[in-house]
């Protein structure tokens, strides 16, 4: 993999890591009310929203379609 093709991938990974943390990690307390349905699929929904701004939307969609 060339350094050129790798930069957007790392950007993608940073966003994936951020969304994964905010939606799927962090403290959960018993008795809280879930204000959004935050399951694994939503990581990709959120990611698509985020990635739309960095121009890698198509690739992500293609990847999601393969699943």
């Amino acid at each position: 993999m060339s350094a050129e093709s790798k930069r957007p991938l790392e950007q993608q990974i940073t966003l994936l890591e951020l969304v994964d943390r905010v939606l799927n990690k962090g403290v959960v307390l018993t008795g809280d009310i879930m204000l959004s349905v935050a399951d694994v699929d939503l990581v990709y929904v959120g990611l698509r929203v985020l990635l739309a701004s960095v121009g890698t939307l198509e690739e992500l969609q293609a990847e999601a379609a393969e699943r």
């Binding site: 939606l23 962090g26 959960v28 008795g31 809280d32 959004s36």
Partner: peptide
Amino acid sequence: LPARFGRGFG
């Protein structure tokens, strides 16, 4: 400790 997104209390 960060809280998970989208959790509220009445």
